[in-house]
Amino acid sequence: MMSRYTGLSLQSEAEQIRQSIQDILTTPIGSRIMRRSYGSLLPQMIDTPFNEITRLQLYAAAATALIQWENRISLESISIEPQEHGKFILDLSLTVVNSNQNESLSIPLNFGAIS
């Protein structure tokens, strides 16, 4: 798998999973021509006020998308912290299925035109 930023090959499985998760969560459902159900509902929540209800909806949307589209992981826990407008940090605790190794990933999620 190649890095979307450098074009170089990603060396570790953790890097590949991190990039895949970021792609899944930032892709709006319905935006892929041949895979209309690919992606998550997170991009639709950009402008919603960040409160406890929205936080629970973000958790549900992220977990649902990852369970459906990333079969290399078993999700243990998830937390989302807002940064600037349209930016979040997603903290995941997961197990890589093939190696049964526990991983903690912090993934920046940037929505909108400014990244």
Rank of each mutant, 00 (worst) to 15 (best):
T95H: 07
L58C: 09
P43V: 08
E76C: 02
N51E: 13
A61T: 07
I46P: 01
D23P: 03
Q16C: 06
G39P: 04
I53L: 13
L8G: 06
I67H: 15
A62D: 03
E76S: 09
G30P: 09
Q83K: 10
N98W: 09
E81W: 11
N100L: 12
Q16K: 14
S3N: 09
E52Q: 12
P28V: 04
M45T: 00
R35L: 11
T26G: 02
G112N: 08
Q19V: 05
L10I: 06
E81Q: 12
A62S: 15
L10H: 05
K87S: 08
S40C: 01
I89M: 10
N71P: 03
I89Q: 10
D47W: 14
Q83H: 07
I80D: 03
S93Q: 14
A61C: 14
Q57A: 12
G30T: 00
M34R: 05
D91F: 09
R18D: 06
P28R: 07
N71V: 08
R72G: 04
A61Q: 08
F50A: 02
T64C: 10
S99Y: 10
L92A: 02
N98R: 12
S79T: 15
Q68S: 10
N51C: 11
S74Q: 12
P82R: 04
N110V: 01
F88D: 02
T27I: 07
E13W: 03
I21S: 03
N51A: 12
A61I: 08
L25D: 02
A113F: 13
P49A: 14
S74W: 01
V97Y: 10
L25W: 01
Q11Y: 06
Q19E: 14
L94K: 04
G86C: 00
Y59R: 11
N110W: 02
R32V: 10
L66Q: 09
P28F: 06
Q19H: 02
G7I: 12
T48S: 11
